[in-house]
Amino acid sequence: MIRESNLNALVLILLLAVPLWAVFNDEPFTITLATRAVIFALAAVGLNIALGLGGLVSFGHAVFFGIGGYAMGIFAHHAQTYTPVMEVPFLIEGTKSMPVIWLVAMVTSGFAALLIGLLSLRTAGVYFIMITLAFGQMLYYFSISWATYGGEDGLSIYVRNEFPGVNTLVPINFFAICFVILCLVVLLNALLAKSPFGLALNAARQTPQRVQTFGLDPTRLKLLAFIISGVVTGLAGALFADLNRFVSPTMFSWQMSGEIMIFIILGGVARLCGPIVGAVTFVMLEHFLGGLSDYWHIYLGALLLIVVLFARGGLVGLISGREIAHD
């Protein structure tokens, strides 16, 4: 058994060590895989803020992932075709600068989270799962029919966007950017959980009345958690689009929402590094099982099943044992 905080450090170190090893052994594809895992992990950490801390099981986080992706796609598309994003009421030019795109991605997904959260938080439990799914499907079908930005074909961006002072075309540099962001967000997540807001949120999840007696509005706490969660996942979406240099409606699909949720469950709900362990494991399984046979989904399914049935608390729970109070 390893203590969870030690495990967290170990996971991050491993996640950093593998791509560094790959640089020295000239295995650029390993770096790409690791970057993919880091970005998925970021999306899942984002969802975990709503799901783990706030108890909000959102089956529609692909909305934010997709909005982030399209923010990148739309701005970069206009930059590469030298057309403005919009002219009325005021002129907005396309851009290839990552920080600007991130900001746009975060603001738009935060705003979307505010709207969706306001409506969805009227419901609870299973109904909440389903209403968030409904928002996901709405945007999915919308993006398929949105011919201006490629519809189902999606948008291809030919060259990865720029980050001041870093050549993002070198795989390890882009990995480093994503990794730093992941670490920052995990840190934020840890601070958040211990902050007065995090504690109040935790209480609101368990017994809303207790929070109310202190004069706090549990719905407002949850809404805030939902927005923060959407912002982080939106940022992950923008990075994912940059990794692939491509966006498409699949980023909005319910399978995508499901996958983000599965990373968390696989790793362990409400564990700081659960989403990271889950995402990394999933990407590795996908990669290694894919080579075994055409029917590798069967093996993937069987492995997931074994984890659910025999590893309560996900992989992190399996390794570090101690069940933390999360319900």
Binding site: I129, I265, L266, W296, L300, G301, A302, L304, V308, R312
Partner: peptide, 21 residues
């Protein structure tokens, strides 16, 4: 519910690919 989601999602994978097999 979360464990159920993961487990039944795993079952979809198994059934779909099994049927194709």
């Amino acid at each position: 519910h979360l464990d159920q989601v993961l487990a039944t999602f795993a079952l979809i994978l198994i059934f779909s690919e099994g049927t194709r097999w």
